[in-house]
Design a protein around this nucleic acid. Structure first.
Lengths: 197, 197
DNA sequence: TGTGCTATTATGACCAGGTACTAAACATAT
DNA sequence: ATATGTTTAGTACCTGGTCATAATAGCACA
């Protein structure tokens, strides 16, 4: 290699890193930013297989477009794999990095809760189901990459109150437990759902 | 107005709608799609104040980039407005459409839980804090547009266990209550956090 | 000292997807 | 026939590139 082995390699490295956090920057701006010519930047991109701005912007747009949709429309957290209305249900949740504390890689508790809660609510055979109370217990932390299987069972139904138990496991080991009281609301909202809108 | 009042107006309307669901389409493609010339499309965009493809793509990219970040990196759900470590804390959460059931406009319970839980965990003065158990109670449904204020108080600390109460209100009215037991974990993970990684 | 090698920069032709402007064709009501 | 609104066409120019070619700078090595 030449006499400036560090320089070029180093610059390309920094370029790559920089573009990950600033995907919307043009070659011209990059050139100014790295104090080299536009052509050098283009050569670097070529060698590194990095597409032009517009392509990068488009990629970001498409990817996060889909992501926002999937996150926003998630009426259900976790994938429903089995459901017998009013009786029992099963849901699976893959612990992706988004669900964890970045520092520790441990899943944030409320996602386990969310999985259990949405499953419990899904079990209820009514137009609208609202969680009333819950007792929950985290047995051990769940880490990135683990697959959480939540199993819900309806224990009792009294009037419009469903008593539901959920147990979440990772490879058979219990990681989370919850008992829910869920209110079934049909048609007009009753006193519980007293709101003035 | 002219003799084709429907046609033009109607086309522009459809154009606008179409672009909301397909923001990445070029004028040429639009022209083919609406069976008019490219110039007509450009005039329509001009009249409607719709920017060119690249600009639209960029907007989508920037907006949803930020959104994904804010959703994914939300180590904290809700905005922390006050915090006295180990004593008490206050957090606010604006109920946006993403947080609600689309059908009813009622906030999904796990977001209220998440707000309370992250607040409780934030209160703990330790390297890592993990929720152990919780009792929660939803007092009334919260709707889109409401602003939930969660107030957390540390009740007791026994060894590494924090007993924390959280009360969430909308305009003074209690909508949610929770009691948490949170474990403080410093340095090496102890038996509770028994994992084999 | 010249030769070779790499890295960098410059230059020009070309492209997509536009903007901005001018002009012409078309339809139709008065 | 003329005025009016709609649509289409054409041109010059812009940004942010690709691709190919060439010139230049810096240093090693024999």
């Amino acid at each position: 290699m030449g006499r400036l082995p560090t320089t070029k390699h180093d610059r390309q490295h920094r370029l790559q890193n920089y573009l990950e956090t600033h995907p919307f920057i043009t070659d011209e701006e990059l050139a100014r930013c790295f104090a080299v010519s536009v052509q050098t930047i283009r050569l670097d991109r070529l060698e590194l297989g990095i597409p032009e701005v517009r392509e990068r912007v488009k990629q970001v747009a498409e990817r996060s477009f889909a992501k926002v949709k999937s996150l926003a429309n998630a009426d259900l957290i976790g994938e429903l794999v089995d459901l017998e209305l009013g009786v029992s249900g099963l849901s699976m949740l893959e612990v992706t990095p988004e669900l964890t504390f970045q520092r520790t890689g441990i899943a944030r508790g409320h996602f386990l809760f969310a999985q259990a809660n949405t499953l419990a609510v899904a079990l209820v055979d009514a137009e609208i189901a609202l969680t009333g109370t819950a007792k929950i217990s985290f047995k051990r932390p769940v880490r990135q990459g683990e697959r959480v299987v939540a199993k819900a069972m309806v224990k009792t139904i009294k009037e419009n109150r469903y008593y539901i138990k959920v147990t979440s496991r990772v490879e058979g080991e219990i990681v989370f437990r919850a008992s829910f009281v869920v209110f079934a609301v049909n048609g007009k909202e009753d006193t519980l759902v007293a709101d003035r809108s």
